[in-house]
Amino acid sequence: DDLRWKMPVAFATNLPGLGSPAAWVADNLTTASNGSIRVRVYEPGELVPPFDILQSVSDGKVSAGYTWIGYDQGKVPAVPLFAAVPFGMKPWAYIGWYYYGGGHDMLQQVYANKGFNVHAQLCGIIGPETAGWYANKIETLEDYDGMKIRFAGLGGKVLERLGASVTMIPGGELYQALEKGTIDATEFSMPAIDQILGFNQVVKYNLFPGWHQQFTAQYLLINKDEWDDASESQQALVEASCTAATTLGLAEGEYRNGAVLAGFQDEGVQADQIPREVLLELKAVTEEVLEEESERDADFKRVYDSQQEFMETYKVWDSRAYLPSDL
């Protein structure tokens, strides 16, 4: 049968890499299927509030949704591992693990174990986020102590351990909060997106590397019954479109970020590296936090162990095969 999918998205489709793949997938599915799959995109909040996309897809209220699944970590503790992991894999390593290391099947299992009736398909990925925008330089670990910072996800938990005052001010208020010093720092996404939010106009320290989010992955969630009803050719087309969107999303971010970052520097933004000792310390705390999460949730542990195991074998390749960036 012909499929008609209403697809709410969690990010505006004008955000490069983050939201743009959703619009591309919707268009491409209609074109490539010759109209047998038609997808209508609903911008954030038009149909479903972004945080409820999983629920409404699972309940069959909408057929599909496009989101950063990390938003659902309150319901499915293991999903952050598929969305963004502090000190996690580089994007191409992540898709290696996802496509060939059993990640895709594990994700289906993780949802099913919590009673969610969805098929999830990796459908977009971007490279590292920046470690945030800061009013002041970060030189030692103590600089995090007492800092008022907006920081999402597991990374936020890490910073909280280091004495930071972590808040989750809504995206819309970030710019002002930062400008006015209501917060001292914030992270949001990669340079091409942060630019749209205008943080570079407000504070001058943009820190790297994005230790808390080396990759950020978006997924197409499809109601499981709807997915099972789709013909094999329709399913194949969805899989192929999403794989293509993943490549295109990554390409878009990689293509733009360099120029944007260079532009920031022309405006006097300092793109500083977080000192190595601080990174080591952050890594140690991150491991503590992730271990704790592992103890709390069996799915988390299973996925985390699988990722750790892959990263261990990947390490030798990663450290030897690529040219150093200063060459």
């Binding site: 008609r4 479903v48 309940d59």
Partner: peptide, 24 residues
């Protein structure tokens, strides 16, 4: 028409929850 109950009135709880959880 692209109209059905689940994606209209059926979304009442999700949308109302969106109002409840608004910090603003």
């Amino acid at each position: 028409l692209w109209f059905d109950y689940p994606s209209s009135m059926g979304l009442a709880p999700e949308r109302i929850w969106g109002i409840v959880e608004s910090e603003t």
